[in-house]
């Protein structure tokens, strides 16, 4: 069961998360940053609740009012040409 993939984008397994949490005795946030669980192409939309459930179980941290890992723009992958464009609709 430990080789179960939790984060599909980055193929982070349950074992990866458990090992990292155990080795560094760190916060849920740090486990995410170290394993990249929830930080792949989809921005965590698919696995965020599952990753949070695993981390609650592994680290014992209960979800607070803030979203556990800050959501940063862009919230969709964007091409450089889109970012560089200055097209503006008033």
């Amino acid at each position: 069961m430990d080789d179960l993939i939790i984060c599909r984008c980055e193929e982070v397994s349950l074992a990866d998360i458990k090992r990292t949490a155990h080795m560094y005795q760190c916060s849920a946030r740090e486990v995410k940053l170290r394993t990249r669980a929830g930080m792949g192409y989809c921005g965590g939309r698919t696995c965020r609740p599952a990753v949070d459930a695993v981390l609650e179980e592994v680290t014992g941290e209960k979800p607070g009012n803030d979203i556990p890992l800050k959501v940063s723009p862009p919230v969709r992958p964007v091409s450089l040409s889109t970012l560089g464009g200055s097209e503006r609709h008033e």
Binding site: R8, C9, E11, Y41, C42, R45, T46, P77
Partner: peptide, 15 residues
């Protein structure tokens, strides 16, 4: 190299 197909079909997962 593991295979992927549609997962969410509504634009969220990018699979």
């Amino acid at each position: 190299g593991n295979p992927r197909g549609i997962y969410c079909n509504i634009g969220h997962c990018f699979e």
